[in-house]
Design a protein around this nucleic acid. Structure first.
Lengths: 235, 235
DNA sequence: CTGCATCCGACGCGATACTG
DNA sequence: CAGTATCGCGTCGGATGCAG
């Protein structure tokens, strides 16, 4: 921003910093747990590295994050106290967005890679067996090189692969990108998705039944869905 | 915004709409009670009318506000349900800004006209006498044509004048723009401001003592100050 | 006075390529 | 891995004009 708003209002001063393009999404990624430059890039695939670099510098300069050395040319970004106190702001914005703008997504807003990256870091692996569990996800309408994904869960840690890791697949999930996004955004329950035939599961009954407990939806979407229950539309 | 973020995340979808330049401040003004184009302009003096018009159209298109006719070429903008639910977002942002960025204001952020406009609509006139009360404010360091202001309170309604309304002045307040801004932003109590000599009052003792009850500070700043009490720095 | 429309210059942003 | 360098475009800000 060339120049600020020239207002003493706290909202204006906060907006000067936070409402520049991409800034709030960088904060979201940091809150979600990303710490390294290229980790941030995975969550912000459409942001140019130049601009990410600029935004990180601005956030450091304004005291929202801190950059620490983890080795030669290896840095970690972490939230300061001011940054951690952005959590309620991001949450409030997520709830509002979930309720009022992201209900009907345009095709352009769907992104197979982003969805799988978000799922990979968001599944609750604690309810899965300790032993290795391999879940293959086939996004039926994605371009060939982004159609097949593997979630490998082991000892409560989940890895996401775009290439067949070679292990035997325990559970196969087939759905369109839009369908899986709807489920992940808590717009559609797993049962509803299966009933319409838009999402199919192949594997042992036990793993199928366990699924609603580990594919619990994006943290922000869960908040939004909660608030829908707490205050239904029209109330 | 030429193009969105291409993300399904509710924060991203909300940010596409709300985080464009000025948009959140337009929402703030509407929440503060402005309904007409030029009323909005008073609270956004640095925003070009062109851009205000554009933003209002965007907010109408996205269902945050609604434009209704009040006569020939006379319109009123009012918040829809979606718009009213932005209140917690603006408040959260204001509290964060008050705590982390607007503590030390640059000279450029001070604006006599904006300050007086905000005070004029924000004073609690219900504690003032029913009869007409005239309060003159002299901003000692403001340019000549913005140095003297009159707040005329009558029957719980307050008018702001930049020209002497002619009535006898009941109370005179003298301070720099920065000093009065600090008080209005709840950074400094009235007593502290008077003790340092930065703010002086002339008038009957009764009106002076009443002052902390009607000059109660900007709504957003009061929220911010509250949260400072609720959670002191460092806690 | 309200509620815009138009024109122009500046710069923030996106895309791509490249480096230590 | 962690960023820079470069360049073209589009959006924004400022000034001005104008109709009801």
């Amino acid at each position: 921003m060339t120049v600020g708003y020239r207002q003493f209002c706290p909202v204006a001063k906060a907006a000067e910093l936070l409402c520049e393009r991409w800034t709030l999404l960088v904060a979201r990624e940091l809150i979600a747990g990303s710490r390294h430059f290229n980790e941030l890039r995975r969550g912000l695939p459409r942001m140019s590295p130049t601009l990410l670099s600029t935004r990180l510098s601005q956030l450091v300069a304004s005291g929202v994050i801190r950059r620490s050395a983890e080795g030669p040319m290896q840095h970690a970004y972490e939230l300061t106290q001011a940054g951690q106190e952005l959590v309620p702001l991001i949450e409030t914005m997520g709830v509002w967005g979930h309720r009022w703008v992201s209900k009907h997504l345009h095709d352009d807003d769907l992104d197979a890679g982003l969805l799988m990256w978000d799922i990979g870091r968001g599944v609750d692996s604690s309810v899965l067996p300790e032993r290795r569990v391999v879940i293959e996800v086939e996004l039926t309408d994605a371009p060939r090189d982004r159609r097949h994904w593997w979630l490998v869960s082991e000892a409560e840690h989940v890895d996401l692969c775009l290439e067949d890791p070679g292990h035997e697949v325990d559970l196969l999930i087939r759905a369109t990108v839009r369908m899986l996004t709807s489920v992940w955004m808590c717009r559609l329950s797993l049962d509803e998705a299966r009933d319409t035939g838009g999402l199919t599961l192949s594997g042992p009954e036990r793993l199928k039944r366990l699924m609603p407990r580990w594919l619990i939806g994006s943290p922000l979407a869960r908040l939004g869905a909660q608030s829908l229950v707490a205050r239904p539309i029209g109330a």
